[in-house]
Structure formats: C-alpha cells, structure tokens
Amino acid sequence: MTTLPSAFAGGLLIGLSAALFLLLDGRIAGISGLVAGLARPAGPAWRIGAAFLAGLVLGPPVFALLAGGWPAMRIEASLPVLALAGLLVGFGTRLGSGCTSGHGVCGLARLSPRSAVAVVAFLASGMLTVAAGRVLP
C-alpha cells in the first residue's frame, strides 16, 4: 500500500506539521521532548505540548477514515524485547536530547551540527542492532 511517492508525501505532511508548530506556536516538534514534558508542572507550555500529542494520537484514526483503512502495522518483536527497546528509547532520547523527530526532522532542517551527529549515531546503532540480530541466535 505504501509507495515511495506516498512516503515522500507523508514526509511532507510531517515536515509541514513541524513548520506550523514552529511558525504558529514557536515550538520544536520533537516527540520525545514533548512526551517527557508531560511530567513537568501544568502550565501554558504543558497544555500546548499535550494538545500536540493529542493530535498525534488522533492522526492515524483520521487518516484511516479518509483512506478507508488502517495502515499496515507489523510488529515482529516479542513483548519482552519491546519492553527492553522501550526502556532504551525512553532513556536514550532523554540522555541524547531528542529522537528521530527532534534531531531528524527539526534538527537537520535547522542545519544543527549537534543534531546531525545524533542522527548519524542513532542510524548507525540502529543498523548495527538489526545486523547483529541477523547474525546472533
């Protein structure tokens, strides 16, 4: 169902989202940072972040209504592996100050050297992890 043109078009929507969030609300659309921000005391910034995340959760159902079906989701990892992966993603994105959206979509667009280094590091470690999974039992 997903083709390379629809992948690029979906990417444009993601970038448009980041552009609007920046131009209208002045905020960086980094998902790990917004999620972590939910733990901070409530205030105007908290409400803006929570509103963005609410929209994010509603995005796929709205897409499913318009497209006439839920997009494919194939989860290969077992529950214990998903739990370990979630811990690493949560801890790592806080220690490294961002994830694919904050460092990738927003940081690369800002030409931030810090984000470029982070993107290279998480791409390399993700690729090594998948490659290791092929070799190891």
């Binding site: 989860i75 990892a77 592996v81 998903l82 370990l84 992966a85 979630g86 811990l87 690493l88 993603v89 949560g90 801890f91 790592g92 994105t93 806080r94 220690l95 490294g96 100050s97 994830c99 694919t100 460092h103 810090r114 280094v117 982070a118 993107v119 590091a121 998480f122 791409l123 390399a124 470690s125 993700g126 690729m127 090594l128 992890t129 998948v130 999974g133």
Partner: peptide, 15 residues
Amino acid sequence: LILGAVLFGIGWGLS
C-alpha cells in the same frame, strides 16, 4: 548526546 543517541538506536533497531 552520542551515548543517548546510540542507546536510542539500539531500542529503535530492536523494535
């Protein structure tokens, strides 16, 4: 920055 990104990448690759 680098250690965090590497740990994130491992979790990303696993899941």
